[in-house]
Design a protein around this nucleic acid. Structure first.
Lengths: 207, 207
DNA sequence: ACCTGAACACCGTTCAAGT
DNA sequence: ACCTGAACACCGTTCAAGT
């Protein structure tokens, strides 16, 4: 066909289409050929705009996070409440695009988090965390967030536990209020971590 | 060639070879054909022993966890110390096979954890966690473990932070003792969570 | 510069055929 | 029962050729 008067391929449209296809049909059905067909172009053309398939996957993952970002974090009374809000919002963003999570995990590009990290670093300091420990606590909070999201997305079935072999686990599983929502669990965990982060002056040496 | 006098394919040997190949060449280079060639059989034969490729990946992931399991968890004075040991050991297991982590995350088959969960449920109870909250705390600890492992495996570069835009984050990053080992971070976090888990009688209602 | 069809070197999986 | 070669319907990526 040759070169059209206006470019047929726009980067953002490609990424939005990729995200939509992945969300609708799953990551296993996503291919360059399917994406190209949906866009009405040839698969080869995509390589004029993206280095490879991974660049498209990364872009779609970044777009997913961007789309589910809350417009503005509300200013709360305490920095703790604000941190909880940020983490719970981020969990919601990850849960809104479960199919993109494996991509995020596989690449774990943390650049996207730098803005929210800058803000959270300030909040941690205001809540009394010593400066040298701010980055470790950010890492812990990040890890908690990602891990809870990963487990939550795959919550397929409540696994069966033999009552005789594991009596306590079994009783806790059948207890009614045992299954909190992931957002509630993450809030409990974040508050627990922050309560301790304020107390610690420094990491304890392995004595 | 036809049927040999003794089976050429043994399930455990297939999984061990798969794990080795994935660890050595990466998950992207792992294919049924490569696995079959390494084993000296045809790719088609593998389908007589495994339903599909996913079953092999799951088996290899389970094997990785099994291999890195410590022989016996030492009986400590306090249940808290024992929980920390279990979680830190599990982190070591995950870090020993970084290439298998995406497989675990993608499938998140939690059945493999039931034994250690049964034990940890008992430890949580002994450390004073109310029965109805044991499963939520197990979920939180699982999430923390997986998330920290995921982030640790991909710790490619310390990202650059603009000192003017994010002064606190920047200062914390350049502070010398800011980068604790993942095992140290997870220990700090687990102790913080346990300290709080003992106090809480019940999940706080969203008031 | 931008897009194309065709080709290359792969995939996972199935299946009739062999012993 | 267990293994095989060949085939099917796909992949990601490259590249000469078109305008």
């Amino acid at each position: 066909m040759g070169r059209p008067p206006h470019p047929l391929i726009v980067r953002e449209r490609v990424l939005a289409t990729a995200l939509e296809l992945i969300g609708r049909d799953g990551i296993d059905h996503f291919s360059m050929r399917v994406l190209a067909r949906t866009l009405g172009v040839s698969a080869a053309s995509l390589y004029h705009h993206f280095r490879d398939k991974d660049e498209i996957l990364d872009g779609a993952a970044a777009l997913a996070l961007e789309l589910s970002r809350r417009p503005a974090p509300p200013a709360h009374a305490s920095p703790e409440d604000e941190i909880v809000t940020i983490v719970v919002d981020a969990l919601g963003a990850l849960r809104a695009h479960p199919e993109i999570l494996p991509v995020l995990v596989r690449r774990a590009d943390r650049e996207f988090a730098v803005v929210v990290h800058g803000h959270m670093a300030e909040l941690l300091q205001r809540s009394g965390v010593p400066e040298a420990m701010i980055v470790p606590w950010l890492d812990i909070l990040d890890g908690l967030l990602i891990g809870v999201a990963v487990l939550d997305v795959h919550t397929t079935v409540d696994y069966d536990v033999d009552a005789d072999s594991y009596p306590i686990l079994h009783r806790s599983l059948v207890a009614g209020d045992a299954d909190l929502d992931a957002a509630e669990r993450v809030e409990i965990a974040v508050r627990a971590l922050l309560a301790r982060a304020r107390e610690l002056e420094r990491a304890p040496d392995p004595a």
